[in-house]
Design a protein around this nucleic acid. Structure first.
Lengths: 272, 272
DNA sequence: GACAGGTCAATTGTTGGACCATAGAAAAAG
DNA sequence: CTTTTTCTATGGTCCAACAATTGACCTGTC
């Protein structure tokens, strides 16, 4: 593509002479690290392209492993490795037994949440970055929930809110769990699975961080409950802008308390 | 292994009698569909837990495939399938040759972007949902960029902005490409890779949708350039709130124009 | 000493074959 | 018609061997 030696172009000179030409230096120009892809990667890429090209509707069957073997000339091991990569990405699922096989599947919310979790944990994303993202997503979730919530959403939210109130006086771990459920219900009410899954994932990551730092004091729990009541009220009213503002304040307060608890926990750890 | 004939066991208690015991009904209570996980999945889960537990710093070497074989009792094929799953998730990388092997690696931004793309395409996420998410993320990106941008960020943004202006009068495809670059630079200036990657991914998905519907008319291109100038001005000033509001308006206008073009394109397709 | 080239060995990459486990259909039995 | 059994295509697993890769090491040459 970026070959500097123009004599290789259309003039049909003797290509590939064994003797090094005097322009060998020029030939080295633009030569990058030669990557030799693995056969399983090549097959996985091809299959992935086909699957994502909408030619394969969800539920459609891919060829059997042995058919792929004869079609590609690869060994069954390589074919299986390719299928496993696609399976790890949630693009296919396999069933054993007769009339089983590999079928196209839609990535679930869990797949996306897991991948985000792997990214955040693998990169050790700092808490502040998670706060930034949550501060962007969660108010929008509330905004859309206020606009789009159904009666069923409201019933679910009220039930979870009641459970959250009860758990405010008990075990902090239970409270944090119910708190996560509350945010899940809110995400569902937004009727945007992508947005909801992103917000939930980031929320869970912060939730895990808050389990390490035991910051859910009784006072914090009471304040969270009051804030959630105000948010639910705005959603019941259908006032999207009000819901957005109230969630924004809630998340900011939550982040502030969490950060304080983390730094305090770090002090305590230094004291060891 | 699953021989029904208990006489093969050494203890000689007649377990598994062919005759159903009178309490078989009680024994069946609480028995759900028995799932038999694949050996490669089990190994992948174990390795993933270890990797994400921060016990393995990035760059650390995992045992060799043959060591894993002797340690787990599995076959090499199963071990390799497990490693391929982790590789597809960006948690490990593998090099052939002596002193090669499998090492822990941090998932890249591309990994996360690909997974989001797979989710959105695999689920056929509607354009409106993408717009919702972008409307949540991009204003926050601008907000943080205005607060945290370095001199290098500003230089990069100014250069790309100039290129974008030039391309406004030329090929719409080139313009859309430069537009994507502009948003990439903005994401980089926010100094939050997670937020930036999420925003960029959703932006690319909308970008792909806009290539199908050719909506980038000359008028739209001019308006985008003016909007970007105003946004860059706010970021240069360091006025985060102003940058946030201006991006919010820009994204809303962009989404509106895109949606109009898509519906028009659908009309044209129906006319076929 | 520096450099070019060759040798070596450990590791992943790939293949082929074999057998087991699974599960749904289809046939047989009641 | 219902239940049971049989059948069989499919994925799941294992083993053994060889090829390809690649960095360290050695060796000769200048």
């Amino acid at each position: 593509m970026t070959t500097a030696d123009s004599s290789l172009e259309p003039g049909l000179p003797p290509i590939g002479q064994p003797l090094p030409s005097p322009q060998v230096g020029a030939m080295l120009e633009g030569l990058t690290r030669l990557k030799v892809p693995k056969s399983s990667d090549v097959l996985a890429d091809r299959l992935r392209r086909e699957i994502l090209s909408d030619a394969y509707p969800p539920g459609a069957s891919l060829p059997t492993e042995r058919e792929l073997v004869s079609a590609t000339g690869l060994s069954r091991g390589s074919v299986r490795e390719a299928l496993r990569m696609l399976e790890a990405q949630g693009l296919v699922s396999t069933r054993a037994g007769r009339y089983g096989g590999t079928t196209v599947s839609q990535p679930t919310d869990d797949h996306l949440a897991n991948h985000i979790s792997h990214y955040a944990k693998g990169r050790s994303v700092p808490l502040q970055s998670l706060v930034d993202v949550r501060l962007a997503l969660e108010p929008m979730v509330a905004f859309l929930a206020a606009e789009r919530r159904t009666e069923a959403d409201l019933i679910s939210l009220r039930a979870i809110s009641a459970r959250l109130d009860k758990s405010a006086d008990s075990d902090p771990a239970v409270f944090l769990e119910e708190n996560a459920n509350w945010h899940d219900a809110l995400a569902a009410a937004s009727h945007n699975p992508l947005l909801g899954t992103l917000a939930t994932s980031v929320g869970v990551l912060m939730f895990e961080a808050s389990q390490l730092a035991n910051f859910a004091t009784a006072e914090v729990r009471q304040r969270v409950c009051r804030a959630h009541h105000r948010i639910l009220e705005a959603i019941e009213l259908g006032d999207a802008e009000l819901a957005r503002r109230r969630v924004e304040r809630d998340v900011q307060a939550y982040a502030l308390a969490l950060e304080a608890a983390v730094t305090a926990s770090n002090w305590a750890r230094q004291a060891d």
